[in-house]
């Protein structure tokens, strides 16, 4: 589902954030992306979502060679990828409902379908009762669950998360990670960048470890230092 072949990324300024990175995630696989701060985790996710372009190498996501996805096609390409952020990136002047509806609205889904699908997504993250709440009225964990509902509302085959539990305590982190696990169980390919070794060990999934832009581990949690 996601395949990198010797991908490198050099930022303007000369910093090599990723060096010859290769890995593969099968459809419906779940993996954690770990590594020290500045290792290149966010950069790797940005390449998958075409926020950044690789400097070298080939990346294939959802059967599409990223170098062939033109600027105009990027929005359509992104509709097949749900993204969750550490800082949630919710719109503060809109209710939870409207935030979750956004991907459907931009994709031009009909109003009556939007209502049904938004409620299904909010129900999945346990926030059906808070659909009228504004982000500011929600706790951090609840805001992150709104973010997750928004990421999955149009049923993308791929779900990416960049430190989704970075601002949450242990109990909430467990809840959030379990949610990702649930989506993985129904066939979504999930890739989560995280510092949280506890979660990596707890869920026992495929682990990718970066160090100074190089992939130093690609395997099971036990292989991680």
């Amino acid at each position: 589902m996601i395949q990198f072949n010797n991908v490198s990324k050099r930022y303007p300024g000369g910093l090599d954030a990723l060096k010859n990175v290769s890995f593969e995630l099968a459809p419906a696989e779940m993996a954690f992306l770990t590594g020290h701060s500045g290792a290149g985790k966010s950069t790797l996710l940005k390449l998958i979502t075409l926020i950044e372009r690789p400097t070298r190498g080939q990346a294939i996501v959802n059967n599409q060679n990223l170098s062939r996805v033109t600027r105009r096609r990027i929005p359509y390409f992104r509709r097949d990828i749900g993204i969750v952020f550490q800082d949630y990136k919710l719109l503060h002047d809109r209710t939870a409902y409207d935030n979750v509806a956004l991907p459907l609205v931009v994709a031009g889904v009909r109003d009556k379908d939007i209502g049904r699908r938004v409620r299904a997504a909010l129900d999945k993250v346990g926030l059906l009762k808070k659909e009228r709440a504004y982000p500011i009225m929600l706790s951090g964990g609840e805001q992150q669950r709104v973010g997750i509902a928004r990421a999955v509302v149009n049923k993308p085959p791929i779900l990416l998360a960049d430190e989704p539990t970075g601002n949450l305590d242990q109990a909430l982190s467990d809840e959030i990670m379990d949610l990702f696990h649930d989506f993985n169980q129904v066939g979504v390919t999930v890739l989560i960048a995280t510092h949280d070794h506890r979660q990596v060990q707890r869920l026992g999934k495929h682990v990718l470890e970066l160090k100074h832009g190089e992939m130093i581990n690609d395997g099971s949690p036990r292989s991680i230092s």
Binding site: I51, P75, F77, R78, R79, I83, K89, L90, L91, R150
Partner: peptide, 16 residues
């Protein structure tokens, strides 16, 4: 700008 960035991230076209 924040709203625009989010819309771009969830697949909104420039036209939208």
């Amino acid at each position: 700008r924040e709203e625009i960035e989010v819309i771009k991230l969830v697949g909104g076209t420039n036209a939208f």
